[in-house]
């Protein structure tokens, strides 16, 4: 009888713990939506903050975050995909690939504030970029490279060998096969990698605080500085502007949620094509 009780207790505990984990998620999202949504006007997205009570909106921050994320994507996309193609299609297992994997693992574990400190010293001061979107984007690129690399490599490896054999059998070179057959087939999953990297870049604070800077102006060129939504939220929350902070959190959450949904949808399409 006791073994039945133990079994039942374990089952109940598993349900309870999992339920609690999900409840935490709901509480966090719920609180931000409930406190952020009332009083939210669309003008919040298209005006600049002003006044001592931080009235107005977050337009400059949206521009800064988007610019930074886009530039990061432009830098890390080609490098990450190029590296993934090399690892998955051309290299096999040699000393360089082992080194690259070790480096990527290490890079993935480095705390974001270390990237921030490095970016400040190297890009901002040493290379004299100043607080700028470019310095922020280069710092973020180093940070998200491992994610980009790993997911792209998995995407390329998931393309069935028969695709390559068919193409090579028709007389295509290896390079043509990679470019015209393998990469297009891996595209949806690779797009997922890009979106995941973008989500991390968009939500990052510590690495951009002292690289992209904090000036609340609207950056139009890569060498201008800007304040991202995340940095804005940090500054608002720690200086007591709680109501606008809720609204910024809501905007951030909405963007991250849509990135996640988009990534999930693309991945589901990819799986359906190859697995089913």
């Amino acid at each position: 009888m006791t073994r039945r009780v133990a079994d039942w207790t374990a089952r109940a505990a598993a349900w309870a713990v999992a339920g609690a984990s999900i409840a935490v998620l709901l509480v966090i999202i719920g609180q931000i939506v409930i406190r952020g949504l009332p009083g939210f006007r669309l003008s919040f997205l298209v005006t600049a903050p002003h006044g001592i009570k931080m009235e107005g909106g977050v337009f400059p921050m949206i521009v800064a975050s988007s610019f930074l994320t886009l530039l990061t994507l432009l830098i890390v996309g080609p490098v990450g995909i190029g590296a993934a193609v090399y690892l998955a299609e051309f290299a096999g297992d040699n000393r360089l690939t082992r080194l690259v994997r070790f480096a990527a693992d290490t890079l993935a574990g480095v705390p974001s504030i270390v990237f921030g400190l490095f970016g400040l010293a190297f890009f901002v001061y040493f290379l004299q970029m100043g607080y700028s979107i470019l310095a922020g984007a280069l710092t973020l690129s180093m940070m998200v490279l491992p994610t980009m690399l790993r997911v792209s490599e998995e995407a390329i490896r998931a393309v069935p060998a028969s695709y390559r054999e068919g193409s090579l059998g028709l007389g295509a070179t290896r390079w043509q096969t990679t470019l015209r057959v393998v990469l297009p087939a891996a595209m949806p999953a690779m797009a997922t990698a890009l979106i995941l990297s973008v989500g991390r870049a968009f939500g990052e604070t510590a690495a951009v605080l002292y690289t992209a800077g904090m000036t609340p102006s609207t950056p139009l060129l890569p060498l201008e500085g800007g304040r991202t939504l995340t940095v804005h939220l940090y500054l608002l929350a720690t200086t007591g502007y709680i109501d606008p902070a809720y609204r910024v959190a809501l905007v951030l959450l909405a963007v991250i949620l849509s990135f996640n949904l988009l990534a999930g949808w693309l991945m589901a399409r990819f799986r359906r094509r190859f697995v089913a």
Binding site: V24, L25, G203, Y234, A237, T238, N260
Partner: peptide, 30 residues
């Protein structure tokens, strides 16, 4: 333990929890 259909709902929820920016966790904590 989880029924299949519930699991397909919970998986993305857990992934989302991993994707929430740390500054939002900090704000919530504060």
């Amino acid at each position: 333990y989880c029924p299949k259909r519930l699991a397909s709902l919970l998986r993305p929820a857990i992934d989302l929890l991993a994707g929430i920016p740390s500054v939002i966790y900090g704000f919530f904590g504060l």
